[in-house]
């Protein structure tokens, strides 16, 4: 999965055509670490249909907040650079992400 940061976020997400799924996470967020491998599976499943990327909020806190993300884990789905959906909560399941992404591809 593509690693996002301040330098490439604009290009890879906001100026990107098609579907981009961004996984906001941090080292201190246990639910994020548990969810990550399942999101990586989804990245494989949707290969060629949606771009999956992750953003560590450590050092990118303001960038996350600019995307109105202030809670982890958060999965945000973008279509042609426009934010479409924001899934969040420590009980967030990969299956919910799967269902949400399926609506856009």
């Amino acid at each position: 999965m593509l690693e996002l940061n301040k330098d490439n976020f604009e290009e890879e997400v906001l100026e990107s055509e098609g579907i981009v799924v961004v996984d906001f996470w941090s080292e201190s967020c246990d639910p994020c670490l548990e969810l990550m491998p399942e999101i990586e599976n989804l990245a494989e499943k949707y290969e060629g249909q949606a771009k999956f990327a992750k953003l560590n909020i450590k050092g990118n806190r303001r960038l996350a907040m600019s995307q109105q993300v202030m809670g982890l884990p958060s999965i945000v789905i973008y279509q042609d650079g426009e934010k479409q959906e924001h899934l969040s909560g420590e009980d967030l399941e990969a299956s919910e992400v799967d269902e949400a992404v399926a609506n856009y591809v």
Binding site: S26, S28, C29, D30, P31, C32, I57, K58, R61, A64, M65, Q68, V69, M70, G71, L72, P73, S74, H86, L87, S88, G89, E90
Partner: peptide
């Protein structure tokens, strides 16, 4: 506002609030 400032897990989200 869940995930956008409303939280039930301090360890998950404390980093945002430095």
């Amino acid at each position: 506002f869940r995930g956008k400032g409303v939280s039930y897990c301090a360890t998950c989200d404390a980093d945002f609030y430095v």
